[in-house]
Design a protein around this nucleic acid. Structure first.
Lengths: 186, 186, 186, 186
DNA sequence: AATGAATGAGGGTTCATTCAT
DNA sequence: CATGAATGAACCCTCATTCAT
C-alpha cells in the first residue's frame, strides 16, 4: 500500500507479497477494507506509543513536548518512509471510508489531547490561563501532518532532519512569546 | 473526484457529471490521468493566484503574509470543501504519478518561495540575516497543508475559522521572537 | 440456463453462447439477475399470449378452455423442452429472488384469472352459482405446472402427448359432474 | 437449502448450521452433491412412508386415495414449508444431476404406482377395464407436484387448506364420471 | 472422529479505452 | 466534434475441497 496506494494494491498482490494465496487473505480479513483498517491501527498505535513513551522519559515539561515531536517527525523523515507514504494514503481514504475516518479522527483527537496536556504543563500559571492551549495543540498537529505530506510527496523540499527542529522552533516561539495584547489567536 | 477519489471516479461517471458521452472525454483527454493533471493545475493555479493577488493589495509586509494565509485557509475551511477534498487526494496520488508529483513539488516550491520573500520583507535587516527564513517558510507551508488534511478528514477537530488566525499566531511568534541564543533551530 | 440452471450459467458462458464479450453483457443488463428477469418475461409472455390467442379463436367456451391447455402443454411436452427446463429453474429461483417471485406470482394470477373466466363461461347458470370456479382454476393450473415439472425432470413417466388430453379429461369430469351434495370442494 | 437453495448453501454454512467444522462435513460426505442426495432421500422417504402409512389405515379404497393426498398436501401447505422449498429446488436440480434425477424419477414412479393401485381398487370391475388408471395417476401426481410448486413460489394464490380438498374433488369427478363415450382421454 | 487453515479456480462485476458511425 | 456500443483485462470475493495436525 505504501508504493501503490490502497486502490493500487490488489488483494492478489498483497497475498503475493505475503506469500499467501488470495483466498487465504479473505479467510483472515473480511474484506480488503479491513486490511486497511488493521494497517491504520498498527501505524497509529506505533505513533502514539512512540510519542508517549518518549515523552514520559523526558526530564522537564518542555523536553517532553520536544520528545513527542521527535517521535513523530523522526519517523516522518528518516526511519520509515513507507509508513509515511501509507499514512498519507490513509488520510486520503479517511474522507470516504467511515470506518477509517473514525479511526483517523480518534488518532488525531488523542494526539491533540496529549499535546494540549504537555503544553499546559510547560506553561507557568499566568500564561496557562491566557493561552488557548488546545488551539495551539491543533496547529502544531497540523504542522506535523503537513510535514508528513510534504515528506511523502515532495521530500526534496525539506532538508533532512529539519522538520523536528523547525517544529521545535515554533513551539519555543509560541510558548515564550510575550503575552500579546490580543492573545495569540485574536 | 472530491467525493469518490481518483480511483473511485470512473470516466463514465465523470462524463455523466459533465453531461458528456464517455467517448468524448477521451477525445479531449488522452487518458484519465490527464484529467487529474488538469484538475491539479486548476486547483494549484487558483491557490497561487489567490495568495498573490491578495498579498499584493496589502499595505505592509506583515499584512501581506497574513493575506497569503487567509487566501489559502479560508479555502481550507469555509469556501470550498470540495477543492480541499480533491487536494488531499491529489497529494496522495502525487506519490505515485510522476507527472502529478512534479506539479505538486512545483506548486509547493513556488508557494514556499513566495512565503520566503514575504517573510524576508517583514523582518528588519538584523533579524533577516540571522533567521533561516526558508526553513520558516517550509514549516508554515507544512502547517497550511496539515490544516487542509485535518479539515478534509477530521473537520470536527478544528473550530471553524480558527486555522487562519492560528497560523497568524505562529507567524507573529516566530517573527517577533527575540533572537534566541541557539537560533530558532538548535 | 436451460441446460445448466441459473447458477450454473456463468455470465461468461452466457456471453460466449451469444458471441459477446463478458463486459458487453453487463453493458446491456445491470446484473445477471436482470437477465433472469428478462428471460422470465419472455417465457411468460409467450405462454400467456399463446393461450389467449388460441382461446380466442375457438368456437365454444368449452373449446376455449381446451385450447388454453393445449397452448401450455403442447409447449410443455413436444415443442420446447428448453423453455420448460428454464421454467422449472425459474420457479425454483422465485422462492429466493423477490423480483422473480413477483413476476411468477403475477403470471400465475393472470393465468388463473383466464381459466376462471373460461370456466365460468363454460358452465350453465345453475352450476356457475354453485361451483367454486376459482378453486377449480387453481387446481387446473397446479396440474399444468406439475406436468411441466414432471416433463422436465422425469419425462419418461409421461406418454408423449398425454398431458393435454389428461387435463382435458379432468376438465370434462369437473365440469360435467353432477352437482355433488357437498359441492366439489367441501 | 430451503432458504438459500442448493447453490446458495455453502458447505461452510451447512457446517455452521449443524455446529460442525467444514472439514468434518467432507469426512461424512464425499461431496456437497452427496448431501443433496441424502437430503432428497430423506424427504422422499418421508413423503412415501407418510402416504403409505395413512393409506393403509383407511377403511375403504376411496378413503385410502384420499388419505394419500392428505399426506402429501398437508405437508405442502401447513406443516413443513421448508421441506416444500427444498423439494422444488431438488426437482430443479434433478434436471442436471443424474444421480438426483434417478432418485426423483424413482420416487415419482413409486408414487404413481401407489396411486394407480389405489385407483384400481376404488373402481368397480367394469370401469377398471375401460379407464386408463395409470394416466389418471400421472395427472393426479402432476397436480400434487404443481401444488407444491405454487405453494413454494406463490403461496398467496392458494387458500390454506384448499389443496387437499381440491384434489379430492378431481378424484371424485374422475372416478364417478359416467363412462364418457370417447373415454376420459379422447 | 475432528479441526480449521489453506488452496486456487472461478464467480459476477467494473472500467479505461477504442472505434465504427 | 460527438456518440455509445464494444472490448477484455483485472478487480474483489466465494467456495468446494484438501490436509497437516
Amino acid at each position: 500500500m505504501a508504493t501503490t496506494g490502497y486502490e493500487g494494491a490488489s488483494v492478489a498482490s498483497i497475498a503475493r507479497a505475503a506469500s499467501l494465496s488470495p483466498g487465504l487473505v479473505h479467510y483472515h480479513f473480511e474484506s480488503k477494507q479491513e486490511i486497511l483498517v488493521e494497517l491504520f491501527q498498527e501505524l497509529a498505535d506505533g505513533l502514539q506509543r512512540r510519542a508517549e513513551r518518549r515523552a514520559k522519559s523526558a526530564p522537564s515539561p518542555r523536553r517532553r513536548l520536544e520528545a513527542a515531536f521527535d517521535a513523530w517527525l523522526a519517523l516522518g523523515e528518516d526511519s520509515d518512509p513507507e509508513a509515511v507514504a501509507c499514512w498519507i494514503g490513509i488520510a486520503s481514504e479517511a474522507q470516504r471510508v467511515p470506518e477509517v475516518r473514525d479511526l483517523y479522527v480518534g488518532f488525531l483527537a488523542e494526539a491533540i489531547a496529549l499535546l494540549d496536556e504537555l503544553i499546559c504543563r510547560a506553561l507557568d500559571d499566568e500564561r496557562r490561563s491566557t493561552a488557548n492551549t488546545r488551539r495551539i495543540a491543533v496547529s502544531l498537529m497540523a504542522t506535523v501532518e503537513g510535514y508528513f505530506q510534504i515528506a511523502a510527496g515532495a521530500s526534496s523540499l525539506v532538508e533532512t532532519g529539519s522538520a523536528a527542529s523547525s517544529v521545535q522552533a515554533i513551539v519555543n516561539a509560541l510558548l515564550d512569546a510575550q503575552p500579546p495584547c490580543a492573545g495569540e489567536a485574536p
